[in-house]
């Protein structure tokens, strides 16, 4: 209900999921063809780009709904309850998109002749999902915090 009041719509969900899917899929393919140092750089890139993306999305939600946020505050909404309404859907769809993208990327990498065995690929998939999930959470938190302060 609160998310609806803050104008968080299916479009918002789709945007988050699509960004996370694209980043995770591309990174997952690349991860399979690089050494450890390259993988670290790639994971850092995933984290950075997704954090910036989700930060912008959450800041945009607050900006579009600044009047609503102010109205909700006047009837007792805490920053935590409003942040949760933004954080949860962005996080859920960010993780879902990351998982889907990592899966697609893993399959594509193996099809293209990636050198890793199933265990290695599974480990890489988990690393990509964890990194992108953490990035989504950090981005949403940072975006919300910046918007809240302003």
């Amino acid at each position: 209900m609160l998310a609806r009041g803050l104008k968080i719509t299916k479009t918002t969900h789709m945007l988050v999921a699509a960004v996370a899917t694209a980043v995770a899929a591309n990174a997952m393919v690349a991860v399979q063809f690089t050494g450890l140092a390259g993988q670290v750089v790639l994971l850092a890139l995933i984290f950075g780009s997704l954090a910036i993306g989700t930060s912008a999305i959450s800041a945009d939600i607050y900006a579009r709904s600044s009047l609503t946020v102010s109205n909700l505050r006047s009837i007792g909404a805490s920053s935590r309850s409003i942040s949760s309404a933004v954080l949860v859907p962005v996080l859920v769809f960010g993780i879902a998109g990351s998982a889907f993208g990592a899966g697609v990327g893993a399959g594509l990498g193996m099809t293209l002749g990636g050198p890793g065995g199933p265990v290695t690929v599974l480990t890489e998939v988990l690393a990509v999902i964890l990194t992108s999930s953490a990035a989504s959470a950090a981005g949403v938190f940072a975006g919300g915090r910046a918007a809240w302060r302003s």
């Binding site: 209900m1 609160l2 609806r4 009041g5 909700l72 009837i75 909404a77 309850s81």
Partner: peptide, 13 residues
């Protein structure tokens, strides 16, 4: 939100 939901919000908080 609907009338009901608007009135319900303070209780939610």
């Amino acid at each position: 939100l609907t009338v009901y939901e608007n009135v319900e919000l303070p209780l939610h908080f």
